[in-house]
Write a protein that binds this DNA or RNA. Structure first.
Length: 189
DNA sequence: AGCACGATGCTCT
DNA sequence: GAGCATCGTGCTT
């Protein structure tokens, strides 16, 4: 079952936690690729100085201000695409960054796309699944987009680790250290 | 196993 | 013009 807009409309921390164990699906050239989400991070509102929305709405971050259940895909470091899912209500900019997956469908295609390397990083994941700027703003609740999230493997609270978000070197406290990173402790099966 | 570094180009000031 | 929500390599312990 594809997660509906009501799932994404929940508080961002709830969505980030609930996405652990869920199945991220990408249909690429007619082939279904999928991975279990094992790491995600929350970015919540203009108050959050680690969030792209901190300085208000811009051309790049506009999708985050839109309705929940859409993909916010942006380009960084001159070569990497990042995939986020937009959360909360329209007008409130928030999203969850997809940071790592465990491949479960189309593993051969994924391995080829990654040249055999891992899928445990936000840019590794987008490369593995063929996610790029063409998907910025698409609905995650309409299979026609070729990108959505389904129920996967239940993850117990005891298997969840939280901690500071990664890569926010110049972000001031408390945002730099706030524990809005979620990941599963050990490999799922 | 860990750290330093260079690659590379778009966005916003 | 500065600063990136990173990755892979190569070198040091």
């Amino acid at each position: 079952m594809i997660f509906p807009p009501t799932f994404y409309a929940q508080p961002t921390l709830v969505v980030a936690r609930e996405l652990l164990g869920a199945r991220l699906v990408r249909v690429l050239d007619g082939v279904r690729l999928a991975g279990i989400i094992v790491e995600a991070e929350a970015y919540i509102g203009e108050e959050d100085l680690g969030c792209h929305a901190k300085a208000g709405k811009t051309k790049r971050n506009a999708v985050m201000f839109g309705p929940p259940g859409h993909a916010y895909v942006y380009f960084t470091y001159g070569m990497h695409w990042m995939l986020n899912v937009v959360t909360e209500r329209e007008g409130f900019p928030a999203a969850v960054l997809m940071r790592a997956i465990q491949p479960v469908e189309g593993a051969d295609v994924i391995a080829a796309r990654r040249q055999g390397r891992a899928t445990d990083g936000p840019a590794k994941l987008t490369q593995a699944l063929g996610v790029d700027g063409a998907l910025n703003g698409v609905s995650l609740c309409d299979p026609a987009s070729g990108l959505w999230i389904e129920a996967g493997i239940p993850v117990e609270d005891r298997d969840v680790l939280t901690g500071p978000r990664v890569g926010l070197y110049t972000v001031p406290e408390p945002w730099k250290s706030i524990p809005w990173r979620f990941r599963v402790k050990s490999p799922l099966h």
